[in-house]
Amino acid sequence: MSIYLPIAEISVNILVLVLMGGAVGFLSGLFGVGGGFLITPLLIFYNIPPSVAVATGANQVIASSFSGMLAHLKRGTVDVKLGLFLLAGGVIGAFIGTQVFRILREQGQLDLVVSLLYVVFLGIIGGLMLTESLKALRRSRGGKKVPMRRAGEHNWVHGLPLKMRFRQSRIFVSIIPVIGLGLFVGFLSAIMGVGGGFIMVPAMIYLLKVPTNVVIGTSLFQIVFTSAFTTVSHAVTNQTVDIVLAVTLMAGGVAGAQYGALVGQKLRGEQLRALLALLVLLVGLRLGFDLVVTPDDLFSVATGGA
């Protein structure tokens, strides 16, 4: 059963899209990640133009993050004040990112830059996760309990000026790294179509020393609003948001996420993380391979603004 995507301007199989959304949703529920960094490369593999894959990815991220954010708001594990400062940076970053996206697209270098960024980020994150989870696996096999890293020691971030107290997170920190972090993640959101949780969460824990119980909720809070801004920004600047594609992915994604979360509760964390790391590395490798292998046709034609 095929469906025509009005913005991507191609006909695709609707079942493949729903399954793709469902599979990524399942993974995101399983591992507690947004899934944006998997959906965008998958769409590119499925011949969706990268410009549409990225902008639509940002749109799709809203749905998966929004339901998560609601749950955290209910539990009271969102630091709204911290979230708003992150968001302020995020909006600026997303705005800059959208403009850079437009310029790259006009220059014909967008596809390359998107692929390169994915190869680099997927490589780093996959590599770090794999080594970390393998270490944890080895340690737990030795019978010792895996110690969680304690947040608390101060680092260079705490020497910066413009400090502010964030009650919910019980931290007293300069707003410079907070806004900077938001800006960086907002920029990536616009260029890569990701929520950015994979950077936001570790950065909040290790740099800002935010207690782990509020990290996920606050990160989701900022992701929802930054992705919303990114989506509108892309729609206005680049007209590359495909609503039909987004809704199809979301439908699969939201359902998949619920089952993923159920399964996730029964499986062991370290093994799961090792699996996800392998998957992330694999996707990165495939993208990298496409950059290196000689293309069938060296020429490409773009019409009008595209």
């Binding site: 749109n59 998966s64 339901s67 609601l70 509108v232 809704v247 979301m250």
Partner: peptide, 21 residues
């Protein structure tokens, strides 16, 4: 109507996420 289109895309995503919950 790119602005309205973008806002609509966001609302759709929010509703989908909310329905999913």
């Amino acid at each position: 109507n790119s602005l309205i289109y973008g806002l609509l895309a966001v609302i759709l995503a929010v509703v989908t996420g909310w329905l999913g919950r």
